[in-house]
Amino acid sequence: MSMFSRSVAVVGFLLGLTSCCGSAVFAADWPHRTVRLIAPVPAGTAPDFSARLFAERLSRRWGQAVIVENRPGADGVLGVSAFLGADDDHMLLYAISAVVTVHPITNTKLPYDPVRELIPIAPTSDVVLAIAAPAKSPISSLGGLVQAALAQPGKLNWASSPGLPPFVVGGFFKTAKLDLALVSYREISPALQDLGEGRIDIYVGSLGVIMPQVHAGRARLLAIAGEARAPLAPDVPTVIEAGFPELRMDGVVGFFGKRGMPDAVRDRIAADVGAIANEPEIREKLAAVGQAARSGSAAEFAALLNEYHRRLTGLAKAIDYQASQ
């Protein structure tokens, strides 16, 4: 090797070393100021609760304020767009998995590419989803729902939270040839009120927001839409136990960054989030509102999202789903 080549090699090595060390130092020193956490959901929802819970704990760890900003609208698209459009390395996205697992399937013209532009950082919890009917309704099980819908085509209606439920439950109704009208709401509170009053026949959403209606004697849980029964409602069967595994929904929530985020910063955030998710007090608080704490690395979170996306893509093909333009 010539003297010139050796010199070039040494300079390249030093530059790489400087870059590596600089990234590590930046990660260790991050954040330098207030961190804004964009939550593309309305206040009072299950993801909003966990966002604020983790924001408070991260503020303690980082010694900087972590502020949750709710940016609801268009099934989360407005919030994600605002996050990706901002030039701020102290802004993170806190969102349900649907932003990368469902939206690319249901909308062919998103203003961004969530798979390429969003970087999974760490999961925080699984939002337990449930299916409910008004307490005064004769429908008391998923089997009863199917029978009632077959006996009264076009007479029943339903509503849900955004994300997975409209896609998965809507797909089930289509496959089973059940004619139920979907009622859209801009906010969850009116939908829950209508459920309690019997104006909505079926509501699908997070267990935590449904439970107040159940405790008030205004709603009845038909099934838990996950793999395991929920501690908050241990007597309610899962959709799998009820014989309708196609209604299983995985509502994982977590932190995302933008493409180009330094790996060292991503991993630093993931480690802190994972430590918080493993705190017994955090697990208890999440369980009390119908969520299950989940910890994991960035790679594990990305693999989980890929798995969910593949399963939902298969569902879309099975029901011949036509994405909106």
Rank of each mutant, 00 (worst) to 15 (best):
G251H: 07
E117S: 03
R36W: 10
A316V: 12
I131P: 07
G171W: 06
Q152F: 05
A130T: 12
T18D: 04
L304T: 12
A46F: 02
A271V: 05
I67V: 15
G12T: 11
R71L: 08
F83K: 15
L222C: 05
D267Y: 00
G16T: 08
S161E: 12
S137D: 11
R6V: 01
A51H: 04
G274A: 10
Q147I: 03
P72K: 02
G208V: 11
Q213F: 05
A74N: 12
A132E: 04
S81L: 12
A219E: 02
I269T: 08
E56F: 05
L84Y: 05
L129A: 14
V289L: 01
A55D: 09
I282Q: 13
D75A: 05
Q193H: 12
H32R: 14
I282S: 10
V127H: 08
E279V: 10
H215R: 04
L93P: 13
L315M: 11
P114I: 00
F244S: 03
A65C: 09
A230P: 13
I200W: 08
I200E: 09
T101P: 13
M91W: 06
V168N: 06
T45M: 01
L286M: 15
A159V: 06
G260P: 02
A292Q: 11
Q322L: 03
V169F: 14
G251R: 11
H103K: 10
L207F: 06
V99E: 13
G144R: 03
V214Q: 02
I210K: 04
L222W: 01
Y112E: 13
D126Y: 11
S189W: 07
T238R: 03
D235P: 09
I131D: 00
S206N: 01
G314N: 02
A46P: 03
